[in-house]
């Protein structure tokens, strides 16, 4: 599948924003992060900035961005529509959460924070389901895709929250969470890659043409000599050796190093922790961009069976 830049950026940025909102809304009422209203407002501002920039970037992917409002209408059948509805609804408790923080009204901030956290999680779940519900793409129609989206949003959100909390002198809890979700993401992605590498394709050139009753099927003549939309959009392939290298980069730079830096930050604390967790958060987001790009580049669509036989 063609890794469209706007979608890769959207799911990474918005995912991190929703992850940050999730942990902020959940941990603040529990008193596990700095209680300073300004800390809450800065973290909330960063979360909403990432979410909004990501959503706007996703509009760039559309043929008719001005009609995007129509996308919230089909929530009964479409996961993309549900994602849109959930994304917009999340703004409501998030803004009320912000008002609660600004006016220092814990009775408003706490429930709205929890509601925003839930709503953020639902949005990321919907994003994952858009991909997981597509049967023709076996690398997406996989049981680890939705857990992957949730885990990686939680990981990048925790890394960002740990960075901000370090500047307010208390990044321990989110740093531990970044460590745990980083380990979770590492294991999940490793299991996912092993899964898609060993899983046999469900559809074959034989079933796609129904000619299996004669024997093995090989494409002979394509219907057109030049490329087309289907091949550009669905026929994108990445060389295996590049994929293997990029996977190692994701595991090392996206998960390994941020985890190591979070561990060091927990041991040192203070100004060193600020620097370490900032580098960690940047690495985590960079690693996730590569991971998301791979998620597309490694995915294959059944339409290519008609063109290449695989």
């Amino acid at each position: 599948m063609n890794p469209a830049g706007s979608i890769v950026f959207f799911t990474t940025a918005s995912g991190a924003g929703y992850g940050l909102l999730y942990w902020l809304g959940l941990l603040r009422p529990l008193g596990l992060i700095p209680g300073d209203p300004w800390f809450g407002l800065v973290a909330l501002g960063l979360a909403l900035l990432l979410i909004t920039v990501g959503l706007l970037s996703s509009l760039a992917h559309l043929g008719h961005p001005e009609r995007a409002w129509r996308a919230i209408s089909q929530w009964r059948s479409s996961w993309l529509s549900r994602e849109g509805v959930a994304a917009l609804l999340t703004y409501l408790p998030a803004v009320l959460f912000g008002i609660g923080l600004l006016g220092d009204i814990p009775a408003l901030a706490a429930p709205m924070g929890l509601l925003a956290a839930t709503s953020a999680m639902v949005t990321v779940y919907s994003t994952g389901m858009i991909y997981a519900s597509l049967k023709p793409i076996r690398q997406w129609h996989h049981p680890l895709v939705v857990p992957g989206y949730l885990m990686l949003a939680a990981f990048s959100g925790a890394a960002l929250l740990a960075m901000l909390a370090a500047f307010w002198g208390n990044g321990a809890v989110p740093a531990v969470l970044a460590l745990l979700t980083g380990a979770g993401g590492f294991l999940l992605k490793t299991a996912y890659w092993r899964g898609i590498d060993t899983q046999p394709p469900e559809a074959t050139a034989e079933s796609a043409t129904g000619l299996g009753q004669i024997g093995k099927v090989r494409p002979l003549d394509p219907p057109h000599t030049q490329t087309n939309y289907l091949l550009r959009e669905m026929g994108f392939r990445i060389a295996r050796k590049h994929a293997a290298k990029l996977r190692r980069i994701v595991l090392a730079a996206g998960f390994g190093l941020p985890m190591l830096l979070a561990l060091l930050a927990l041991l040192t604390g203070g100004a060193a922790a600020m620097a370490l967790l900032t580098i960690g958060a940047v690495l985590a987001l960079g690693g996730l961009l590569v991971e998301r790009w791979l998620m597309f580049a490694e995915a294959t669509h059944t339409v290519t069976l008609y063109y290449t036989g695989t």
Binding site: M1, H61, G63, H64, A71, L134, L230
Partner: peptide, 26 residues
């Protein structure tokens, strides 16, 4: 009313839908 998101083309196993990239609709 099509917004040209392309999701339907991804969802079709048979490659039956093609985007009109001029008009921005499927």
């Amino acid at each position: 009313t099509c917004i040209g998101c392309g999701l339907c083309a991804w969802a079709c196993p048979y490659g039956a839908r093609e985007m009109d990239e001029d008009a921005g609709v499927m």
